[in-house]
């Protein structure tokens, strides 16, 4: 997995851990722009289920995606307690709605393991690697895989 190798170039890695669809995930910290509280969105017409709508982030129009739904879990019913993580992926700025954000996790890069390859689905395909944490573990989300423009259609 070249994305993982790329990540392991640096010795020390930092992740922000979060909960989406009841499971632990984490996102590499350099991809995160900011974390903010849920605010109501403007709904987009004809949008897929996981796209909640757009918000105004200091003058820019940012789409908000339900991370749980995007990963194949049930949709999150957003309340004031839910959190939006603003991420930058390949020149695009996107907000991800998650259930909660827990902590910043610093690990040595060699502790990151490759995702064991089993039967693949939407979620496992977007997992870059896993980090064991005592009894538990957390999964690194590859944003570029998860949010890749699947097939660009020339207009």
């Amino acid at each position: 997995m070249s994305q993982l190798a790329e990540l392991q170039k640096s010795e020390r890695l930092e992740f922000v851990t979060l909960v989406a669809g009841g499971q632990n995930f984490c996102i590499e910290i350099t991809q995160i722009r900011e974390i903010r509280r849920w605010t109501p969105v403007t709904v987009l017409p004809h949008s897929p289920d996981h796209v909640l709508g757009v918000i105004n982030l200091r003058g820019a129009v940012i789409p908000i995606i339900d991370l749980a739904a995007k990963l194949g879990f049930a949709k999150i019913m957003p309340t004031e307690r839910h959190v939006i993580i603003i991420i930058a992926v390949e020149d695009r700025i996107i907000g991800l709605l998650v259930e909660s954000v827990s902590e910043i996790l610093g690990v040595d890069s060699h502790t990151v393991r490759e995702t064991p390859r089993g039967p693949e689905d939407t979620t496992t395909r977007a997992i870059l690697g896993i980090i064991p944490l005592g009894d538990d573990m957390t999964k690194i989300i590859s944003l570029s895989t998860l949010l890749a423009p699947a097939n660009q259609v020339a207009a």
Binding site: L44, V51, N56, P63, A155
Partner: peptide, 27 residues
Amino acid sequence: VKSMQGNYGEISGISGATILGDGKIAL
């Protein structure tokens, strides 16, 4: 007029978005 193409992509029937007086987005 704020373009949505960069972060989201094209939506049929919508040419862009704007920000209203109350800070909300209108398509």
